[in-house]
Design a protein around this nucleic acid. Structure first.
Lengths: 353, 353
DNA sequence: TCTCTTTTTGGGATCGCTCCCATGAGTCTT
DNA sequence: AAGACTCATGGGAGCGATCCCAAAAAGAGA
């Protein structure tokens, strides 16, 4: 079933059917209706490959999340939320979304070739690509446009990316704890191979330094962004008597909270706790978490729009889009007297829509 | 850059280059090496559209999750886990994955057309497609193979699907509670528009009936698969004095647990609690949850393999694949004396790999 | 050395579209 | 009423692969 056979049935030419399908204005209303009727009747679908062959665009965007399953599921639904944002925007922009989840190793030649095939997608979006990734080098040679979500670690200037100012956000979180009178503030970092984690650690150090507080390296512990490692990190920290903890995300904060409770300490009375992301879990802990809200879905949406602009040649210089974050004060930091539970601001990201 | 230009540089013909690319055995080793060198040198990528046009296959599988963001994120990572399973298997089978997330409404003609375009994907996988969905009707007319994950509500016989025996699993969970001497067993159901939820409810009723226990409709409450509604459902149940609760998933169970604790009751002493899925959260509650483990990732993997078999014409009759579930006994049901925390079986799905 | 078979190679036809140009029909102008 | 102009339509060329068949080259057997 092709254009020609539809044309024959409608008593017109191939070209006219093509015009109808592509909403060309130069078709008489009468003809258009006749053709549309036949198309409907025959349940005709134009061949995407043939179209792509001549138009040199597939109307497909590629999304690559070279994230291990481990991180994908533990990190606060961060990646699923990014995905949702991407998916929404890409659908709205009338593209389809081709997806690769999971680690991409250098040895996976097949996949590497496919990813860099400029004929398969019109552009690519990479989410949290580590700097030492073999794809990185390939990217530079790539002729097709691409956008990164989260700041790349190297070659920052020439890369289009969408991120938040993690350094500033971490400064604000830490500063908040300092203003509450805390002096021994610990930090449970995320995976330090990820730029965001590094930046948050930098922000944490900046804030302490700015306040003239000493930086005690024993108060800095790494985690894997998940509950379990948050719990263990806190157990490591407790002997050094911190009076506050800034955690790399809300799930880690929840794990830390568990360890704190098991040690017979109270939050926020004995320790103040601040998380990051502001997702569901921040409201499910007891007490609910003070945290930094970042617009996770919006990151995905923005990246998709940016990529499409790039594809359409609307941009010249590389774009660096920095989305805003916000400190959400709840009970776990002890900043103010408890408000009625559930009465405070909810995340814009988690359950909305 | 096309086959022809590579051919010219290598001093061979178009056809020979094509043979090299497609691993045809009828190429001399010498020629193959020469051509491969040029391909590498020029960073040549064959045009996927041109290939698809003549081969009549795109090597792309479509995955449709017509799930609202609400359910996507609340339901125990169920959908992200399915996705991971699909992604792994599809990559391994050397296909690419085209994805549509989120609700697909009848009015979204554009998307509907795209989904049913047999030239875009070689086959489709639908995850938890509600029975009243407009896509359902379109599917029947579809000429391309498709597989569903989770039992469809109607037209079951003619549909290829992968699921678990939710009825039986719920019977086992409920039976377990009965054997522990519980008599007023409540059920927090999931969204009843989803077949799985219905089946679990049926299994619950079956078990009570088989044990000669009365079915008290006040002990059955619906939830949205998330913490919040699990919490509220439990609050509704408490006045009717249940001595056990079978929850539709682990997150709902966690929400219920919170409500139980707030009411000053203890688990498992005052109430036994059983969840469903066996994901991370089941180990993060205190006490850890007794639950039904279902192989979520394996569902995705199985569906992908089934679809590829279907595409290759290896199957004739519609396939119904039912994967096994397992009762995982931990502390929340009170079945045995507490084992050391963390020492019990972990989910095969959550953090592995 | 010549024939017969097998392996390797080359080039035409084809897939189903879009693009471009030519043509015909209808309208407006002078 | 003829030329100029617009709008609707038709058909050739071409996108870049694969497939098929024919031809050339290499190897085998007598």
């Amino acid at each position: 079933m092709d254009l020609e056979s539809i044309a024959r049935k409608a008593g017109v030419s191939r070209s006219t059917v093509s015009r109808v399908i592509n909403d060309s204005p130069n078709v008489s209303e009468q003809t258009r209706q006749r053709v549309l009727a036949i198309i409907e009747e025959e349940d005709f679908h134009p061949n995407a490959a043939a179209r792509a062959l001549v138009k040199r665009r597939t109307d497909i965007l590629g999304v690559v999340m070279p994230t291990s399953a481990n991180v994908f599921f533990s990190d606060n639904n961060y990646y699923p939320l990014i995905l949702a944002g991407l998916s929404d925007a890409i659908r709205q922009l009338d593209y389809a979304m081709l997806m690769w989840l999971g680690e991409v190793t250098h040895s996976d030649q097949h996949l590497m070739r496919r990813l860099s095939n400029p004929h398969l997608t019109d552009g690519l979006i990479f989410v949290s690509l580590p700097s030492d990734h073999p794809l990185y080098e390939k990217l530079s040679r790539l002729r097709q446009p691409f956008v990164m979500i989260d700041r790349p670690l190297t070659n920052v200037e020439n890369t289009n990316y969408v991120s938040v100012d993690n350094v500033r956000a971490a400064e604000i979180a830490t500063q908040h704890l300092i203003q509450l009178g805390r002096r021994r503030i610990a930090h449970i970092a995320g995976i330090l191979a990820i730029a965001d984690s590094c930046d948050r650690l930098v922000g944490y150090r900046n804030a302490l330094r700015a306040a003239g507080l000493p930086i005690d390296e024993r108060l800095i512990v790494e985690s894997d962004f998940n509950y379990q490692t948050g719990y263990r990190a806190m157990q490591q920290l407790l002997p050094h008597k911190p009076d506050a903890v800034f955690a790399s995300n809300d799930t880690v904060a929840a794990g830390a909270l568990q360890a704190i409770h098991e040690a017979g300490l109270r939050v926020p009375d004995d320790l103040s706790l601040v998380g990051f992301d502001d997702v569901d879990v921040a409201l499910q802990t007891d007490p609910p978490l003070t945290t930094i809200r970042q617009p996770i879905r919006a990151k995905g949406e923005t990246a998709a729009r940016l990529l499409v602009d790039l594809i359409n040649g609307k941009l010249s210089a590389p774009q660096h889009v920095i989305l805003p974050t916000e400190l959400i004060v709840r009970q776990s930091c002890g900043a103010h007297s408890p408000t009625p539970k559930g009465g405070d601001a909810r995340s814009a990201d988690d359950l909305s829509e």
